[in-house]
């Protein structure tokens, strides 16, 4: 921990990225998949509605994209702050 200030800035940036991911994570599963399903039930997908699709398939696909995006974004952040392995 030679450079506490920059590591604090790094950590704050990381927390911000985590919050963005958690917000999307919650929106697609709890939001579109469960709570807001009645609001978006007008959008039909293959014999059911968008909320059903998010609950059974869509949220899982978004989760995958989220993790890879986070991994990519954090690798860039590591290099920006010079803390990469």
């Amino acid at each position: 921990m030679s450079d506490r200030t920059s590591s604090n800035a790094y950590w704050r940036a990381n927390i911000r990225i985590i919050w963005i991911c958690i917000a999307i994570w919650a929106l697609v599963s709890y939001g579109f998949g469960i709570i807001f399903r009645p609001l978006i039930s007008g959008i039909k997908i293959g014999g059911s509605d968008l909320g059903f699709w998010f609950a059974q398939q869509g949220s899982i696909l978004v989760f995958i994209v989220l993790i890879f995006w986070y991994a990519w974004r954090m690798n860039r952040l590591d290099r920006e702050y010079g803390v990469e392995e």
């Binding site: 985590i18 599963s29 998949g33 609950a55 949220s59 899982i60 993790i67």
Partner: peptide
């Protein structure tokens, strides 16, 4: 579990996959 309950048991699908987002992030 999904076959005999339908939509309501989507909880298992989301719950048993969403945990990996938490693992990767946290």
């Amino acid at each position: 579990l999904i076959a005999f309950t339908g939509y309501d048991n989507s909880t298992y699908l989301m719950g048993w996959t969403g945990g990996y987002v938490l693992l990767a992030l946290l």
